[in-house]
């Protein structure tokens, strides 16, 4: 039972995160040097990190967000995960206003990033999970059972009492996933979860991600630079460029956008998702 998603709602329309016309502006303070005068002064500049984004993340689905660096993926994830408030637009999770109730939202979501950060290296896996679980108000037997279940799920039972600094990259990433599941989130935001991992471990992680959505019923938003990963995992993909969604659809639909384009299709084979992505971004820029 410890893997079951809490808060399942019967109303299918309410079982999703819905973002409508999200906009995020940052104010950047820049130093400018005056022609005369020794000291520079600061000038404020507004950066439009996300210009207009509307998307949905239903439970039981894996939604991909793809785009080149600087496309606005990180800001979008941060808004969807209620880390930052949007400048304008609306965001609801299972019918609840996520902007006004961000603490309520934080109990029901989690974020998993690739790489080796975000864990206490001197602590063991168990100690890490106990600490992060406590931050969600979990304690006692419930927390112990949850930790045992998660360590089993990610295959770290044997190394549960080993300090994280002795873990391999793959083990650390699996522990990251366990950490991200400690509060049994309904929605997971995964930022390049297989970054820097070898193909065997990456495959294991992908299988786990797939199970989390399709078997356990969580809604997952995935960003990745590995197009094959998106192709394998994502049920629906949004392509971002310069803070806007420039294309969306299933992988077949995205490839289909280019299927009859003689410039792109040079052979009898259908274009790959990677080719489609590059072409869509190029067209948008031209």
């Amino acid at each position: 039972m410890y893997g079951a998603v809490k808060g399942r709602l019967e109303d299918q329309d309410a079982r999703k995160i819905i973002a409508q016309h999200l906009v995020k502006d940052y104010i950047l303070k820049e130093k400018i040097m005056e022609k005369s005068g020794l000291f520079g002064r600061k000038q404020k500049r507004v950066i439009h990190a996300v210009k207009d984004i509307s998307l949905e993340i239903p439970q039981e689905k894996i939604i991909g967000v793809l785009g080149i660096n600087g496309a606005g993926k990180t800001t979008t994830i941060r808004m969807l995960a209620s880390i930052i408030a949007p400048t304008s637009g609306s965001l609801t999770m299972n019918g609840v206003d996520a902007v006004k109730n961000h603490l309520w939202i934080k109990e029901r979501i989690n974020v998993i990033s690739g790489g080796e950060r975000n864990l206490y290296w001197r602590l063991t896996a168990k100690e890490n999970l106990r600490y992060f679980g406590s931050l969600y108000g979990l304690s006692g037997v419930d927390l112990d059972k949850r930790i045992a279940y998660l360590l089993r799920t990610v295959g770290l039972e044997e190394a549960a009492n080993v300090p994280v600094e002795r873990y391999s990259k793959g083990m650390k990433q699996r522990l990251q996933i366990a950490r991200g599941l400690i509060n049994d989130p309904i929605y997971l935001f995964m930022d390049e979860p297989t970054l820097g991992l070898d193909i065997v471990i990456a495959k294991e992680i992908r299988n786990l991600v797939s199970d989390l959505a399709h078997k356990e019923g969580r809604g997952i938003l995935l960003t990745t630079h590995y197009i094959s990963e998106a192709e394998e995992l994502c049920d629906y993909i949004y392509i971002l460029d310069k803070g806007r969604i420039i294309a969306e659809g299933t992988k077949e639909q995205l490839k289909g956008l280019l299927a009859y384009e003689p410039k792109v299709v040079t052979s009898v084979q259908e274009p790959s998702l990677e080719e489609a992505l590059i072409e869509i971004i190029n067209r948008c820029n031209s």
Partner: peptide
């Protein structure tokens, strides 16, 4: 440096208690 501050800020835990 370790990025744990960022992760702790994702949680609904009371910052005063922390």
């Amino acid at each position: 440096r370790g990025g744990t501050l960022e992760i702790a800020s994702l949680t609904p835990a009371s910052r005063l208690a922390m």
